[in-house]
């Protein structure tokens, strides 16, 4: 790991430049797709803080994603018409939820952790689905007006997909930076150490459960924030957002892109949406193609697409020496 060499800075800068400039040369539709990719990237990266960096496979991450969406919409419907208030409510709400559920879940690991989080996620799903008077039941909770975004001096209308895109870009960027700081910090190192060998971490005096719980709460809260973006973008919070199959999407994108790299899940999200777009354009039998492509990608990229590509370049740089 060198310092801030040009080689390290350049691609990140280019990526950022592309994302900032995108709305000016892409069609509205692709701006919308990019918005969804960014939202799902944040969601999948939050999942990967648990999975890739802590070694905990959560199958209930959609529970927090959806809860964030519901908290925000409920605030918009019954509270002040402010996006900031809605976002704050969702952050506090999902953090508390993640604290309680996480406290129960982090005592297990491996597949048991996965199934237990799936169970709690599905309880949240059932709550959203059955508590019709509050959540609107299976039809979801919509009918709110999207308030303009108050940026001190300006009011930005989010009805324009391009403005909304910039909001999502900013939030996702902040989330990514937060995650980057976390995984590079001593805390992040400890997390990774618990993944490799939790006993050894316990020996050096760290409280493994508390470490995991902290990661769980951060991951849950970030997923909640992604859920707020998703719900406002679609103008509805629906029970599907909390379903295990939605958690499965985060798993899919992460493994597809590469769980060992921070941006791996984002790459996975991009691949998934671009693939889905092209497949659904030429056929309604999209599942059979998506399934086949997934199988091929899993077999061809042992570390996920981004992970494997980076490894390939790294090896090339080091020369042919094995």
């Amino acid at each position: 790991m060198g310092g801030l060499t040009l080689r390290r800075i350049l691609p990140a800068t280019l990526l950022l430049a592309f994302l900032v400039a995108a709305p000016f040369f892409l069609s509205t539709y692709w701006v919308i797709i990019l918005t969804e990719i960014l939202t799902m990237s944040l969601f999948a990266m939050s999942f990967n803080l648990l999975f890739g960096y802590t070694g905990l496979l959560s199958f209930g991450q959609a529970g927090f994603f959806g809860a964030g969406g519901y908290f925000a919409v409920l605030t918009l419907l019954h509270g002040p018409p402010s996006l900031w208030v809605a976002l704050a409510a969702a952050v506090v709400g999902t953090a508390l939820l993640a604290l309680v559920i996480g406290w129960l879940c982090v005592r297990l690991d491996e597949i048991y952790f996965a199934i237990l989080t799936l169970g709690f996620g599905m309880m949240l799903f059932t709550t959203a689905h059955n508590w019709r008077s509050v959540t609107g039941g299976s039809d979801g909770l919509g009918g709110f007006t999207v308030p303009p975004l108050n940026l001190i001096a300006w009011q930005v209308s989010l009805f324009n997909p391009k403005y909304f895109y910039f909001l999502v870009l900013a939030v996702t960027l902040l989330g990514t930076l937060l995650l980057l700081r976390m995984v590079k910090s001593p805390f992040g190192l400890l997390l990774r150490a618990t993944r490799e060998n939790s006993n050894r971490v316990a020996f050096v005096g760290a409280n493994v459960r508390r470490l995991r719980l902290f990661a769980f709460v951060i991951a849950g809260t970030l997923a909640g924030v992604a859920g707020v973006l998703f719900a406002i973008f679609n103008r509805i919070a629906s029970p599907e957002m909390l379903h295990w199959s939605f958690s499965g999407k985060a798993v899919l994108m992460t493994v597809l892109g590469g769980s060992g790299v921070l941006l791996g899940p984002a790459v996975g999200a991009a691949i998934f949406y671009v693939l889905e777009h092209y497949i659904t354009t030429f056929t309604t039998s999209w599942m059979i193609f998506l399934g086949a492509i997934l199988v091929v990608l899993v077999l061809a990229f042992p570390k996920g697409v981004l992970g494997s590509v980076m490894e390939f370049f790294a090896q090339k740089r080091r020369g042919a020496a094995p």
Binding site: G248, V251, L252, V255, L256, M287, I288, L290, G291, A292, I293, L294, V295, V298, L299
Partner: peptide, 11 residues
């Protein structure tokens, strides 16, 4: 999990 998920979609 991912591979068998792909197989599931396919089947």
């Amino acid at each position: 999990l991912l591979l068998t998920f792909g197989v599931m979609l396919f089947l």
